[in-house]
Design a protein around this nucleic acid. Structure first.
Lengths: 342, 342
DNA sequence: CTGAAAGCGCTAACAG
DNA sequence: CTGTTAGCGCTTTCAG
């Protein structure tokens, strides 16, 4: 039941004042003699002292905690993003507080409020439809990263108190890329399994599909709007097949793996009878049956850039997240056996 | 750039003292007249006041943040657990700080230290091999939930300063259950795809398999120890097939879906030629091809119990997490088409 | 280069 | 029932 050592104890042992301990700890704002620094460090080691971040946050008004709000932590893509961010942030001395908005505006607002009450030093908001509740952010001048900032969301124009970093995930481009790949495979009746109706998120992705199809001189085939779940993907198989399409671009990986399952049950061969490409793939796509061709976001790189942008001295206001097409079996690409599971 | 309102402002507007505001906020420890309470509440609403949790944590020595340490956030099972815990905790006014130990002791220690520095009110530790670094916990008298406490880990006996809540996930029983189900299907050469060698985690699961096989009067077939990844599962297919087994019990779902992929490539039919059951399944198992029979932990219930146990006034010291066998296609159970994707 | 001291916003005695 | 007040541990002026 020993109390944790405080700065004062460290100072006493080091034969100095708490101010000096603080200077050593933070490398400033004043400089410290080599001798004093050594004594302080020794005292810290001896006592096992660790700064109390609550006290630090209170006095400085800034914590070392970053808040992350995602719509669904169980979604592998978002779990991966969360993991990458956690890794990156921990390496820089920050911790990650997570909030699952459940894709509901009301809950999202509560979550943001809760995170703000924790004095987070920054916020990462994965946007599905709504911009982050900037009103809740009030005057807090903290950096907010809006991943997947949506055209027309008006976020960028909102001119909030804090620094706003907009991450363009190029969803339009990503889905378009996927669609064009199917076109390159000679598919002409490309359907689209899109996300929930009315979501800017979904709309953006769907637009990529529609434009690619039009640009190829084809007329859009069927388009469905369903939740971002495996179940919805599986259920969509029937309708998609009736439409007579020869390929499907899905708005996320969960829909695609669900669809693969639905097609399998219907006895449809992929990619022979129908080819499939998913947007926002994860490494798990390599293990789908057949392995799933996806457009994959470069998550680690993005996490690093986000962490950079969150640093207090950063002046970054915008980022573009790179995606790339990962060719596997479901689109019809021949995949050498050796690379199939890579 | 407006500063956030403080308790003092609220008190001023309500025409009372900060103490009364505090009493209203915390429902105690003193009672407040109905009239004063109303005025305080009005002032809070008017100013949009939110308590500063850093200050609260500092003075009370207790925050409303719970720390969670898992070995791999990208693992769907753990992502699901994280999500459930987040949901449960948020509903009670707590936030969740996550730490990904990457299954490395060194990193785990750092993560725990970081979380403790944040003055977490409790810790949830998902144990793979090592017990949580109790030494790091020092004298902090905070509740620590060890999910999947491992027999012989010595955690329970460590008598730490805080309250220790041991969650028995019954891994032995779960894997045994899975194995017995395969036995019930008439399989006699049941192999085991286990987790990394030397992990208590893996050992416990493997023991369940070995005992079930022995109890049936059969001699254990092959057993492999590989990482908890899809890739490892896929790579194991060849060796498993050579062993001539007619069924496989895997130690987690990722290994199983990887294995399914490997078997598919090898042209092996599941469950006809080989049946498969996985431990620690998630809802995603329903969408594997074939759908995967698993032993599934009742995550939501567990999350609720963990949250209960974490409450400061709880006296719980142990929990048992219930698992159940979820029959799907991969084991050989006939699954009515209508329920196949349920 | 260093020490003393003033708070950060809040809780919880302690007096009324 | 309510106001006053003493810190919680730390950062950072402001004097030395």
């Amino acid at each position: 039941m020993t109390k944790r050592p405080t700065q004062e104890e460290v100072a006493r042992i080091a034969g100095t004042s708490t101010a000096v301990v603080s200077y050593v700890l933070n490398n400033g704002p004043r400089s410290v003699s080599e001798d004093a620094r050594r004594r302080v460090l020794a005292a810290i080691a001896k006592t096992g002292y660790r700064p109390n971040s609550a006290a630090r946050a209170l006095v400085s008004g800034r914590s070392t905690v970053i808040g992350l709000v995602v719509p669904d932590l169980a979604n592998p893509f978002l779990a991966q993003l969360t993991q990458s961010l956690e890794r990156e942030l921990f390496g820089r001395g920050y911790s990650l507080l997570i909030g699952d908005s459940g894709d509901e505006p009301a809950r999202a607002a509560t979550v943001v409020e809760t995170l703000l009450a924790q004095q987070v030093a920054g916020l990462v908001w994965y946007s599905v439809d709504l911009p982050p509740p900037l009103d809740v952010l009030g005057g807090s001048a903290l950096p907010v990263v809006v991943v997947n900032d949506l055209a027309g969301s008006g976020v960028t124009e909102a001119a909030p108190a804090g620094r706003l970093i907009s991450v363009d995930a190029e969803e339009y481009r990503g889905v378009r890329l996927a669609t064009e790949h199917l076109l390159a495979h000679g598919r002409t009746r490309i359907a689209h399994l899109g996300g929930p109706q009315g979501r800017l998120n979904s709309a953006e992705r769907s637009r990529g599909w529609a434009d690619a199809v039009s640009a190829a001189g084809l007329s859009p085939t069927v388009r469905m709007n369903v939740p971002f779940t495996q179940e919805a993907g599986a259920d969509a198989a029937g309708h998609l097949l009736e439409s007579g399409c020869d390929a499907v671009v899905t708005a996320n990986e969960m829909q695609a793996t669900g669809l693969l399952r639905g097609l399998h049950r219907a006895g449809v061969r992929v990619p022979e009878d129908l080819s499939v490409v998913a947007y926002n793939g994860t490494p798990a796509a390599a293990f789908a049956i057949p392995s799933l061709t996806t457009v994959e976001l470069q998550v680690s790189a993005l996490a690093r850039e986000i962490a950079d942008a969150l640093e207090p001295d950063s002046a970054v206001t915008g980022l573009t997240a790179a995606s790339e097409l990962v060719r596997r079996e479901s689109c019809g690409c021949e995949v050498p056996a050796a690379e199939a599971d890579a």
